[in-house]
């Protein structure tokens, strides 16, 4: 039953995607367009399989850069958001800077960061952090602020200090907000890593796309694009899964609301 329900839920999206691929395939084949301009999906797939060793070889560094950068960004978001929660003055000092950091065009900044920090892992970590940090930071700070005043007052009356109140109430209150921010920022992470590699790297999907483009191989560019999309989707799915495991009470509440006859005295 659950399987059928899941199938029914995803069927419209799958159908739309399949139709888009089919239209593309027909257009590329019947339109007489050179595969060096617009390769058909079937050709992209075939070439991806043929070059699977090179693709895999370039995917691993991208995964590494994405995860390392995202982990740093996540840790920084938790530490800084907690600091800001305890020191409101720090918030007024930091937020204008953080907002300014989001106005930097990645195309211009990526080559500079590579120029300053070389071709290693560090510039990739920095760029991934630059694009993923802000949504999580904002979400956490707003989530802490959403703590109910009654809960805080009750904890204070129980004798809890500021740190206890943060740990028992403010941090958990921030979790739904945090996961909303996490889902947004995780979709930027792979793109950030690819931008960094595009600006300069020994290996990675970014540099692979660049060299494929320079060799007039749009099929291989698209194959790398497909891999990076799959990576992003996988990370997104992982984020949703972690949220479910970390917040089991959310589903409990939804189940009850879905069943109005379940009123208990």
């Amino acid at each position: 039953m659950a399987l059928i329900a899941a199938f029914a839920k995803f069927f419209p999206a799958a159908l739309a995607f399949a139709l888009l691929l089919l239209a593309w395939e027909l257009y590329a084949r019947l339109g007489g367009i050179a595969p060096t301009v617009l390769p058909a999906p079937s050709r992209v797939l075939a070439q991806a399989w043929e070059n699977r060793a090179a693709l895999a070889d370039n995917t691993l560094p991208t995964i590494r850069a994405t995860l390392a950068g995202f982990a740093c960004s996540l840790a920084a978001a938790f530490v800084l958001s907690a600091l800001v929660d305890f020191l409101p003055r720090l918030r007024r000092a930091l937020f204008p800077l953080l907002i300014a950091s989001q106005t930097l065009p990645l195309v211009a900044i990526a080559p500079l960061v590579v120029l300053w920090f070389g071709f290693g892992l560090l510039p990739k970590i920095l760029l991934v952090a630059l694009v993923t940090f802000f949504p999580m930071m904002v979400a956490l700070v707003e989530g802490y602020a959403a703590t109910s005043a009654e809960v805080s007052q009750m904890l204070a009356a129980m004798g809890a200090g500021r740190w206890r109140i943060f740990w028992l109430a403010r941090l958990p209150s921030g979790m739904p907000y945090f996961f909303a921010g996490l889902r947004i920022s995780i979709t930027y992470a792979v793109v950030g890593a690819i931008f960094a590699e595009y600006a300069g790297a020994a290996k990675g999907l970014g540099i692979y796309m660049l060299s494929a483009k320079n060799n007039f191989r749009p099929d291989l560019v698209l194959a790398a694009v497909a891999v990076s999309s799959a990576l992003t989707l996988a990370l997104f799915g992982l984020a949703v899964l972690v949220q479910r495991l970390a917040m089991p009470w959310e589903r409990a509440g939804r189940d009850r609301k879905a069943e109005p006859s379940g009123h208990r005295p």
């Binding site: 109910s148 009750m154 009356a157 129980m158 028992l168 917040m247 009470w249």
Partner: peptide, 30 residues
């Protein structure tokens, strides 16, 4: 300080704690 056990207007149960862990909250703070 600690003379009163206070029950606020709305129940102020923490949705992320099971009922038993909500009930023990004051003892844990102590």
């Amino acid at each position: 300080g600690a003379r009163f056990a206070f029950m606020p207007q709305r129940d102020a149960l923490m949705p992320w704690r099971r009922v038993i862990d909500n009930a023990t909250l004051g003892l844990e703070v102590q």
